[in-house]
Design a protein around this nucleic acid. Structure first.
Lengths: 187, 187
DNA sequence: GTCTATATGGTGATAGAC
DNA sequence: GTCTATCACCATATAGAC
């Protein structure tokens, strides 16, 4: 039994029930192990949560790097950032939901390490918007709020996105970027 | 000790810790009662959650009614809906967070009653957008998705809004509506 | 109405045999 | 590496005295 398989099963259960309601027995059951054997693969329940949040956030931060350094205008960067986020979200629904909704269950110490990384990710979105202002293609009153609005649109999709639904992640990213960019453009 | 005071304290604790991590001892402590006395005021922990979700959602649904029936164009209705939501959110932060984030902890039966009411609220936002299309002032590809985008912006604010922060709920509502409406307008 | 005390069951985590 | 059995603890909820 690989650690990856355990984390994947854990993500699904934690997403469904929430961190506290998800028991180690649930997780052990999902991967057909006894609780004791589960504990030979991982240190603690909290360690599972930390591993999940780290993995999800690190990947999102990695995925946005090529967007930031690409030689394209800010509006195109914004589109790519939205696509990267929704692509990751749709292919890692459980992990994304845990990242966005369960960080409050981190122990205070781990939470203190996590939040700055999360804020770093948000800063990349703000940076793209500020670039658009510097390029003269965006006019936004408040780039910091605009970034929160954009990331809010992206993040909230984990609450309703359905892989079997009418809209693909691509379509949602396209149309969300369309709507938001119109609000950013200089006119 | 009034039931309202108990629910208010419960909302704060459930918002902070999540439903499962919030214990009846925590809640009893917050209102200076013993656990047993707490149980003489409310039936169960689940009943607290149901009461909180009902109260929050009913108020939001009531608050949006005058917006829907007002004799103003759809863009003004949209602005008012955003203001109504953010006004309620900022004045009932704990309750709003519980409404938006804890409905998964409802027992299946209660959840089955809650979700349609929540969808009803979302339908009012979609209705406003469809009115704008009918009036010829909006051009949106997909009113259903546009409503989810707008409600996503509004809802995600509970994750970061700070009453002592730089931006008031009014300012956030203004600027969010500005950004989104530009994406809706016909051009 | 409010309390102390308790019933009953689930929780994270570990000991120790194989 | 995996298991059964168990520990110590915390949860929701209730009984019964005042």
């Amino acid at each position: 039994m690989s650690k990856e398989a355990i984390l994947e099963a854990a993500a699904q259960i934690i997403r469904e029930k929430g961190y506290h309601a998800a028991s180690m027995a649930d997780i052990a059951n999902a991967v057909d192990l006894s609780k004791a054997t589960l504990y030979s693969h991982i240190d603690s329940k909290q360690a599972i949560l930390v591993a999940l949040l780290d993995q999800a956030l690190e990947t999102l931060i990695e995925d946005i790097q090529p967007v930031l350094t690409a030689n394209v205008p800010a509006d195109e960067k914004f589109r790519r950032a939205m696509h990267a986020f929704l692509s990751y979200m749709s292919e890692n629904l459980d992990l994304s939901a845990v990242l966005l909704l369960e960080h409050r269950s981190l122990d205070p110490e781990k939470r203190g390490e996590h939040i700055p990384r999360r804020d770093e990710y948000e800063s990349y979105w703000r940076q793209i918007i500020e670039e658009g202002v510097a390029e003269g293609i965006f006019t936004v009153e408040d780039p910091s709020l605009s970034a929160k609005v954009a990331l809010g649109v992206a993040s909230w999709t984990v609450m309703w996105f359905n892989p079997q639904g009418r809209l693909s992640a691509e379509q949602i990213a396209d149309q969300s970027a369309d709507i938001l960019l119109e609000g950013f453009y200089k006119r």
